[in-house]
Design a protein around this nucleic acid. Structure first.
Length: 399
RNA sequence: GCGUCGGUGGCAGAGCGGUCAAUUGCACUAGACUGUAAAUCUAGCGCCCUUUGGGCUACGGAGGUUCGAAUCCUCCCCGGCGCA
């Protein structure tokens, strides 16, 4: 993998660049759609590609459970297996420490929600930290997972995660980490961070032992705490990895602040990925804070659940108001969905629970995020990011 | 015509004397969704009032029994099935 910065923004940390991999070039900033189980939910890879997807994000834990890395390896690697010839990243399973752990059954997001939403979601009299039902047990050596599919027990360690990722064969792989909840105390975050750093070292050692030409990203953690984030960024900077991912939990309001703090310390000449962040305003904040790539489930999950993105904000297509709205999602959108289908038809498909609803809405959303990134990239290249951000959000945010 | 079983909120379908404005599913309405446990989840869903509360109208229709009825009785209307 080779990374080149083509243009650095004058008045922000933003940069436009190029990540060259064995499976092609990623022009950054780029959106990285998530295909957890080596599949975009509801969208064919060739369609995802046609709407501008450059690189995708699959998951070690899920692919280990099914079909198993041996099968993927036997198929000739994940690219061949799933018919995606472009660059692929794999997550290490670190997010499942969170999603199947403290977040399991709690409706808790790694991005701290507004107080109003939290109050609505946490059952009375229960404290967030002590809720049961976790499928995860963490120790210093690794993590025990219960499969959400069948309850079977699985153990991931840094070494095992890296070994699996080598078998899967993605272009960019990630160290095994612990994604923490925003509800965790700073004491817990510090402890988890020390563990994540130890795991990063072990991940790198295993990666080097196995050889090969995959790129390995370290993961910066530290939750919402600036001192921990700084410590983590400095640790990762000296580790000798090919690039960086920024993970863990955030406060919605200051994602940009924390990310900027981290990126100021990370080496300029290596790529930075912001894990799991993908709402429009957060992407702008991330880019301005020096992030090169973003993965997120937003386009496909929202699309599957009936919500589409537009330049004027989100539309919940199932809503009654679209029943006889015979215009496309966006009149000026060039995506295949908007070329041929109306809001009324999509609304009908969602009500009828037709699978095509997922496909058409997700396709539009993928196009939306990919073209947003392309525009952001152009803006950076022309030193006009601030203006573009302001102009875009002025139209998008008043939902 | 006789017999029999039934008519419950948009639909299906529980309830079978009080704790029933009425279980549940669907439909409907709104909300949520940020390294996917997610084609998912949450909430609302007779009307009115400011409430954890109260009032009103409701279980085909009309009467009746009872302190009290969706639940029991009588008649009527409507439907399924069987026999003529």
């Amino acid at each position: 993998m080779k990374f080149t910065v083509e243009k650095k923004s004058q008045n922000s940390l933003a940069r436009a660049g190029k990540i060259e991999t064995a499976h092609g070039v990623i022009e950054t900033p780029a959106f990285v759609p998530v295909a957890t189980q080596a599949a975009f939910k509801g969208v064919m890879p060739e369609v995802a590609k046609a709407v501008g997807t450059q690189v995708i994000f699959a998951n070690t834990f899920h692919l280990h459970l099914s079909p198993g890395e041996a099968v993927v390896k036997l198929a000739g690697g994940i690219h061949k297996f799933m018919n995606w010839s472009g660059p692929i990243m794999t997550d290490s399973g670190g997010f499942q420490v969170f999603s199947l752990g403290v977040a399991y059954g709690q409706g808790v997001s790694k991005v701290a929600m507004t107080p109003r939403t939290v109050l609505k979601r946490v059952p009375q009299g229960q404290s967030l930290g002590l809720l049961s039902a976790s499928l995860v047990k963490i120790d210093d050596d690794g993590v025990d997972f219960r499969s959400p599919r069948d309850g079977s027990l699985h153990r991931l360690t840094p070494e095992f995660s890296i070994a699996i990722q080598h078998d899967l064969g993605a272009d960019i792989i990630l160290v095994f980490d612990e994604c923490t909840t925003p509800q965790a105390t700073d004491a817990y975050q510090a402890m988890a961070l020390a563990r994540t750093h130890a795991w990063a070292k072990r991940s790198l050692a295993e990666h080097e032992r196995l050889g090969g030409d995959q790129a390995l990203y370290g993961i910066v953690q530290g939750g919402r705490f600036p001192d921990l984030r700084t410590e983590s960024a400095q640790f990762m900077s000296t580790l000798g990895v090919d690039g960086f991912a920024i993970g863990g939990s955030f406060n919605k309001e200051d994602i940009g602040v924390v990310v900027a703090l981290v990126n100021k310390q990370l080496p300029f000449d290596r790529p930075r990925h912001l894990l799991g962040i993908g709402e429009v305003e957060d992407i702008f904040a991330g880019v301005a804070s020096g992030v090169d790539t973003f993965d997120c489930v937003t386009p496909t999950r929202l699309g599957r659940h009936g919500t589409v993105e537009t330049k004027e904000g989100r539309l919940h297509l199932i809503s009654n108001q679209f029943a006889t709205d015979f215009q496309p999602i966006e009149t000026d959108c060039a995506c295949p969905t908007c070329q041929h289908y109306t809001r009324a038809y999509l609304s009908h498909l969602f009500r009828s629970k037709e699978m095509l609803s997922t496909t058409l809405a997700s396709t539009h959303n993928l196009f939306f995020f990919n073209s947003l990134m392309a525009q952001i990239r152009q803006a950076i290249l022309h030193d006009a990011l601030d203006a573009f951000r302001q102009q875009f959000l002025a139209r998008y945010l008043p939902r």
